[in-house]
């Protein structure tokens, strides 16, 4: 019975894959008008890289909600993990080689994050990439025993975690004065996007690190 069910699922999956591929292959040439629209508006977008322009200007509202999604994941982890009263783990044992490596790498990683943030305006890079590098540095520090896991973030840390979203949101609402949410005046677009990206780099770096460090702090049953 169970193997018959599995067989049915496999067959269905094969049919789905086949029809999807056939449907894709029968499509006529692409009829994309948006790349031209993006190119036409690059001059007033405030940045030089089209992907960054879409992410933070043309479809910046998606990004605003996405930052909320990340913070929400951290909250969900807090809700699930925190409710249990499990023993806390003081952090990993410090391996001297790893610790030395982490001390060496951390400043370099922070520098790299700063570069990625700056580069995002005109080439691939930006706040998310920079934040991922920062979070990587935090995880490395934790694994080498130089940064404790987070049990319940204090006010300062919470401010850092939510700050990016709050600044983004305040700007979005403030720009209602221009007639719509997130409607940057072209002459200030570049500066405002940089402000958002800089605050997002810090907050997202903390959130991404938190996704790891909140879990690390609670070793279930240990």
């Amino acid at each position: 019975m169970k193997s018959a069910l599995r067989l049915a699922v496999v067959l269905l999956a094969l049919v789905l894959a086949g029809t999807l591929m056939a449907a894709i292959l029968e499509l006529p040439g692409a009829n994309q008008s948006l790349p031209a629209a993006v190119a036409a508006h690059m001059a007033v977008s405030g940045v030089e890289h089209p992907v960054t322009a879409v992410l933070l200007n043309f479809r910046g509202y998606d990004t605003l909600l996405e930052v909320a999604v990340l913070l929400l994941a951290l909250l969900g982890i807090g809700a699930a993990v925190h409710a249990g009263s499990e023993t806390e783990d003081g952090g990993a044992e410090g391996d001297p080689v790893l610790a030395a490596l982490a001390r060496l790498l951390t400043p370099l990683l922070i520098l790299a994050a700063g570069y990625l943030l700056w580069a995002g305006a005109h080439r691939p890079g930006g706040a998310f990439q920079a934040a991922a590098v920062l979070a990587g540095a935090a995880v490395l520090l934790h694994l080498s025993g130089q940064m404790p896991a987070w049990s319940s973030p204090g006010l300062l840390l919470r401010l850092g975690l939510a700050g990016g979203l709050l600044i983004f949101l305040a700007l979005a609402a403030g720009l209602l004065g221009q007639g719509a949410l997130l409607r940057y005046p072209p002459e200030y677009a570049g500066a405002l996007i940089l402000l958002i990206e800089a605050s997002l780099t810090i907050s997202l770096g903390l959130i991404l690190a938190g996704l790891f460090l909140m879990l690390a702090g609670r070793r279930g049953g240990a």
Partner: peptide, 16 residues
């Protein structure tokens, strides 16, 4: 727009 901004704002404030 406030119907979206307002709940996002108080959710983030409540977290703070």
């Amino acid at each position: 727009p406030w119907l979206i901004v307002l709940p996002l704002a108080w959710a983030a404030m409540a977290f703070l």
